[in-house]
Amino acid sequence: MMALLRALLALLQRDLLLAVRRRQDALVVLGFFVVVVSLFPLGVGPDPQLLRSMAPGVLWVSALLATMLSLERLFADDFRDGSLEQLLLTPQPLPLLVLMKILAHWLVTGLPLVLISPLLGMQLNLDGAEIVVLMTALLLGTPILSLVGAIGAGLTLGLRGGGVLISLLILPLYVPALIMGSGAVDAVMYGSSPEAHLSLLAALLIFTLLLAPWAIAAALRIMLD
């Protein structure tokens, strides 16, 4: 048990250290998110009311696309240098190792999106209560994006044009998270409670948390066969 915890921690620590050493990867994702969200006022005009009503959808779609951007490298680097083979050979359960990699991915790409979202929400004229719900929804939703996205990253491992394939595979699967997430902010905007949306989003998170690691582990074993 201790050995397992130590191994999981070692993997988390390694991935976070790697993320620190090549900061640009995480910064590109964050920059992409900020730039895409900021393009909308330029495109649709500066009408505050219009921006406000579009904000939940814009923020969520931008978060989806920013996450997609980072997925291709989730397993590809480890695959290329042989670390993934060694990971499969460690005497630890692969689904848990995969979960650690996803946790590291989320801490580096998902969490920064959550943290910067209030700023972008203000830019799109959201008020305080709406921003709180937006952050809660993103906090529940971005781990889903990482978990589901990792399935696509595993299935397209080593394929040419993997990045585009991941998008085609995964974007449809992001739809439930998108609907619940932007729905929660919409709800509070129109004066009803966001609780139902947030509960469903939380349920979806638990569901993917339980199933995705096994699916990803199976995908990795197949792709490395």
Binding site: R6, A7, A10, D81, L89, T90, P91
Partner: peptide
């Protein structure tokens, strides 16, 4: 891992292998 030192590489893998 290219970005890690030899020592960090070995340490993390040995811990992963228990």
């Amino acid at each position: 891992k290219d970005e890690l030192s030899a020592e960090e590489n070995i340490q993390s893998q040995c811990r992963l292998h228990g």
